[in-house]
């Protein structure tokens, strides 16, 4: 009766694979050398069309985004707030599929060296088939994969298949994660570790949570991987303080909101690039991790 590959239950964590010399690792090394906070830009692919996304991503990379997360739209994005929900709906209405997003990666890779991460809910990956997905994503030139609703416990097969193709597996850590879970998440992650700044869904907020520095310090006890902090990061003021505690800031809803407001793809690309330049400037001029640590 079953015609989709069932996800295999997991056994103890395997040794970390992924690419220590991949584009993601290289970019974070460079950032570390200059003591500069990185900027990870999330963009929902296919919103409002894959052609527009191509243009927007190139503009974002040109403006200084260090890593691009391409969001694969899903009908039921439980981890996302209203802004990315609406973007997902627009992307699905324009006919975007996971296969289409991978094809976009291929087109982008011919034009830019910016690290590209596919950011998806698990079901579209599972329906394509994990093996077929990993092979296609790697061949297209993707560097990493993040599956929002896949935690290490359910990810053994996924990890070994994705690593075998030389892609990094990025997992999420959350404020509610116990020390045991942080150890497991660190063990299973490669490329960087994505720390969710607060309990909640994606979306812009005014202030960073007060307990974020302590949370980031706790996570660092378990990993040497670069730490990217996301959820609710949108303003230069956020970015300028994050330099003291993280290696990168993830900005998503704020960029997606610019795309939503823009009348044309040209306008969207210009608005996203402008936002990234402002945030990047704040990152360069703000507290760097090196200066924070030397105090």
């Amino acid at each position: 009766m079953s015609d989709a590959a069932s996800p295999k239950p997991s056994s103890p964590p395997q040794a970390r694979a992924g690419k220590s010399d991949g584009r993601i690792a290289q970019r974070f090394r460079k950032l570390a050398e200059s003591g500069e906070l990185g900027l990870v830009a999330y963009i929902t692919a296919g919103d409002p069309s894959l052609d527009a996304t191509e243009q927007i991503v190139l503009a974002a990379a040109e403006a200084g985004a260090d890593v691009i997360e391409l969001g694969v739209p899903f009908s039921d994005p439980v981890a996302d707030g209203p802004t990315i929900q609406r973007a997902s709906e627009r992307a699905l209405r324009s006919g975007t599929t996971l296969a289409g997003v991978i094809e976009l990666v291929r087109r982008l890779r011919a034009q830019t060296d910016v690290p590209l991460v596919l950011f998806s809910y698990f079901n579209p990956i599972l329906q394509m088939g994990i093996e077929k997905f990993a092979a296609a994503a790697a061949a297209a030139g993707a560097d990493g994969v993040l599956a929002t609703d896949l935690t290490p416990e359910e990810a053994d097969e996924y990890r070994s298949v994705v690593h075998a193709r030389g892609l990094d597996t990025i997992f999420l850590a959350a404020p509610t994660s116990t020390d045991e879970r942080l150890a497991l998440i660190s063990e299973c992650s490669s490329g960087f570790l994505y720390l969710i700044s607060r309990t909640g869904v994606t979306g812009e907020r005014d202030a960073l949570p007060e307990d974020l520095p302590a949370l980031a310090r706790r996570v660092r006890r378990f990993t040497k991987l670069p730490l990217a902090v996301g959820f609710g990061i949108s303003q230069p003021a956020h970015v300028s303080v994050l330099g003291g505690i993280a290696d990168a800031a993830v900005v998503g809803s704020a960029l997606v909101a610019e795309i939503e407001k823009a009348a044309t793809a040209d306008d969207a690309a210009a608005a996203v690039a402008n936002r990234i330049r402002i945030l990047k400037r704040a990152a360069r001029e703000g507290i760097s991790r090196r200066s924070a640590e030397s105090k």
């Binding site: 069932s6 996800p7 609703d149 935690t151 416990e153 997992f171 959350a174 509610t176 994660s177 879970r181």
Partner: peptide, 12 residues
């Protein structure tokens, strides 16, 4: 069938 496929925040 079954399992636990949720964002990390809900695991704990």
């Amino acid at each position: 069938y079954g399992g636990r496929y949720v964002p990390e925040t809900l695991m704990a």
